[in-house]
């Protein structure tokens, strides 16, 4: 507390929210986590495939800093702007993508004392709204790159976006119906009083995970990138640092979705709770964070098991089974919320 003594009292909320947005669980954590999760993905897949995966770059840590080497390489490579691209969108959209992938995390509380930093009772709505912006940018990226494969990738993204957005919104609606609030802090408090949401409404959790796999392009729904069909779809023409950005976006997006999943269905910071910046935000935050990372690891691990799904079947599944399940989850929510 001695350091805080020298800081004017009116600055404290600013510093707190700055720490929240920039260090934990914001920007720096996200970058480190992206490094970790890509490493985990390669390493876990290698484990299943009877290999080592990245290793020699730092043998003691099992190649943990492989992504650092890749990032350095990307940063200092030549940035090629091919002839015929739409210059401004091509240049700026990766930055936008990155920014909008990070934004949802700001609205997701990781501790009970979050209302001090972002006093809003519509956080669920805001977070899900910002996560849904990214696919639109992806479509623009695919169009701007002036490449047939990018174009087809963008079209695929468009088709999938529409077919999986409806179930997603239904799941959000069923969460609203279940907890009768859009404030994520209250939602976690309700779960603390009863049981975690995944038990209250397992169908909603399943549909949510399906949508997450789809919109972050995890296997088996990596239809948009599809390296053996479209050579990374919308990202085909990007080189150097820009590709580093767009490569990181799905993982950061995944982080946002997983945090939301942790608060909506896994009970967030349960069993910890408290007050103040450290006791009410950082320490419970670690619990939420760990839950989110576990969800991420699970989703990323699917790469080792499944091949790629097919576009028309994915759309068909989206409009039939996923949609039916979403409606079922709505009914379950109505029923459960009537009970509690």
């Amino acid at each position: 507390m001695s350091i805080l003594y020298f800081i004017p009292a009116q600055w404290l909320p600013l510093i707190e929210s700055g720490f929240y947005a920039l260090i934990f669980p914001g920007f720096v954590t996200i970058l480190l986590l992206a490094f970790f999760i890509i490493w985990f993905e390669r390493k876990a897949a290698a484990r299943v495939q009877m290999r080592y995966g990245p290793l020699w770059v730092s043998r003691k840590t099992g190649g943990l800093i492989q992504l650092l080497a890749d990032m350095i390489r990307f940063s200092f490579q030549e940035f090629i702007v091919p002839e015929g691209v739409d210059f401004l969108p091509f240049i700026f959209l990766p930055g936008f993508l990155l920014a909008f992938a990070v934004l949802p995390t700001i609205f997701i509380p990781i501790g009970p004392d979050y209302a001090r930093i972002f006093p809003s009772s519509y956080t669920l709505l805001l977070a899900s709204a910002f996560t849904l912006v990214i696919p639109i940018y992806l479509i623009v990226v695919g169009w701007a790159a002036d490449n047939k494969f990018s174009f087809i990738g963008a079209l695929r993204e468009g088709y999938l976006l529409i077919s999986y957005e409806v179930p997603y919104l239904l799941v959000i609606a069923s969460a609203f119906l279940l907890y009768r609030t859009l404030d994520l802090v209250k939602i976690v408090n309700i779960q603390a009083a009863s049981v975690p949401g995944i038990i209250l409404n397992p169908v909603a959790a399943i549909v949510y995970l399906l949508v997450v796999i789809r919109s972050t392009g995890r296997v088996p729904y990596d239809i948009v990138e599809a390296d053996s069909e479209l050579i990374f779809g919308p990202y085909t023409e990007y080189s150097s640092l820009m590709f580093g950005f767009v490569m990181g976006v799905p993982y950061i997006e995944l982080y946002g979705y997983s945090l939301l999943f942790a608060t909506l269905f896994l009970g967030g910071w349960i069993p910890l709770t408290g007050a103040g910046f450290v006791g009410g935000l950082i320490i419970p935050g670690i619990v939420t964070f760990v839950k989110a990372v576990l969800v991420m690891c699970l989703l990323v691990f699917l790469r080792a098991v499944y091949p790629r799904y097919k576009l028309d079947k994915a759309i068909k599944t989206g409009w039939t089974w996923v949609l039916y399940l979403a409606f079922v989850s709505l009914l379950i929510s109505a029923f459960v919320s009537y009970l509690i």
């Binding site: 299943v48 495939q49 009877m50 390296d227 080792a304 091949p307 790629r308």
Partner: peptide, 10 residues
């Protein structure tokens, strides 16, 4: 070609 690196490696 179907996007499953595991079977490729196995």
């Amino acid at each position: 070609f179907m996007g499953s690196s595991t079977v490729f490696m196995w």
